[in-house]
Simulated scan of single mutants.
Amino acid sequence: MSTPGPPAAGAPAAGPAPAARHAGWIELFFDLVFVAFVAQLAHGLHGDPGARDFAVLLALYFPAWWMWANITVAANLFADDGPRRRLAMLFAMLFLAAMAAAVPEADGDRGAAYALGYAGTRLVLLALWWPATRATERRPVPRRRPLAYCLGFAVLWTASAAAPASWRLAVWAVLVAAEMALLLSSRGAGIPRPVHTGHLVERVGLFVIIVLGESVLSVVTATDATWTAEAGAVAVLGFVLLAALWWSYFDFATTAAELVIGRSRMRDAYVLARDVAGFLHYFVTFGIIALAAGLGTAVEDAGHEHLPQGALWALGGGLALYHAAHAAIALRFGRPPRRIAVWAVPGIGVPLLIALAGRALAPWLVVLLLAAEAVGHLVYAERRARSGWAASLR
Score class of each variant (00 low, 15 high):
316 G>C: 03
316 G>Y: 09
316 G>S: 01
316 G>V: 06
316 G>I: 05
316 G>W: 01
317 G>K: 02
318 G>S: 11
318 G>Y: 10
319 L>C: 01
320 A>Q: 13
321 L>W: 09
321 L>P: 05
322 Y>H: 10
322 Y>M: 00
322 Y>A: 03
322 Y>F: 06
323 H>G: 00
323 H>Q: 00
324 A>S: 12
324 A>F: 13
324 A>G: 14
324 A>T: 13
324 A>N: 09
325 A>P: 03
325 A>D: 11
325 A>E: 04
327 A>S: 13
327 A>P: 09
328 A>E: 12
328 A>P: 08
328 A>F: 03
329 I>V: 15
329 I>A: 08
329 I>N: 14
330 A>V: 10
330 A>D: 11
330 A>N: 07
331 L>V: 14
331 L>I: 14
331 L>H: 11
332 R>F: 10
332 R>A: 13
333 F>E: 13
333 F>A: 11
333 F>I: 10
333 F>N: 14
334 G>K: 13
334 G>P: 03
335 R>K: 15
335 R>E: 03
337 P>M: 03
337 P>E: 08
338 R>L: 10
338 R>N: 07
338 R>H: 11
339 R>Y: 01
339 R>I: 11
340 I>C: 06
341 A>R: 00
341 A>T: 10
341 A>L: 09
341 A>H: 03
341 A>W: 04
342 V>Y: 06
343 W>K: 03
343 W>H: 06
343 W>Y: 07
343 W>Q: 01
343 W>V: 11
343 W>N: 08
344 A>N: 07
344 A>S: 05
344 A>E: 04
344 A>C: 09
344 A>F: 08
345 V>K: 00
345 V>M: 08
346 P>M: 01
346 P>T: 03
346 P>E: 08
346 P>S: 03
347 G>E: 03
347 G>Q: 04
347 G>F: 02
347 G>M: 04
347 G>I: 04
347 G>H: 06
347 G>C: 01
348 I>F: 01
348 I>A: 06
348 I>W: 00
349 G>D: 04
349 G>K: 01
350 V>A: 06
350 V>W: 05
351 P>A: 10
351 P>H: 10
351 P>V: 04
352 L>S: 15
353 L>T: 07
354 I>Y: 13
354 I>F: 02
354 I>R: 08
355 A>G: 11
355 A>I: 10
356 L>C: 14
356 L>I: 14
357 A>G: 11
357 A>R: 15
358 G>K: 08
358 G>N: 11
358 G>Q: 06
358 G>T: 07
359 R>I: 01
359 R>F: 01
359 R>W: 14
359 R>P: 00
359 R>M: 07
359 R>S: 14
360 A>I: 09
361 L>S: 13
361 L>P: 07
362 A>N: 13
362 A>Y: 06
362 A>E: 15
364 W>M: 13
364 W>F: 11
364 W>L: 07
365 L>M: 12
365 L>E: 15
365 L>G: 12
365 L>S: 06
365 L>P: 08
365 L>K: 02
365 L>Q: 12
366 V>E: 05
366 V>Q: 12
366 V>C: 07
366 V>P: 05
367 V>E: 13
367 V>R: 13
367 V>T: 14
368 L>C: 09
368 L>K: 07
368 L>W: 13
369 L>S: 00
369 L>Q: 02
369 L>K: 02
369 L>P: 04
370 L>I: 04
370 L>Q: 08
371 A>D: 05
371 A>M: 06
371 A>G: 06
372 A>Q: 00
372 A>P: 01
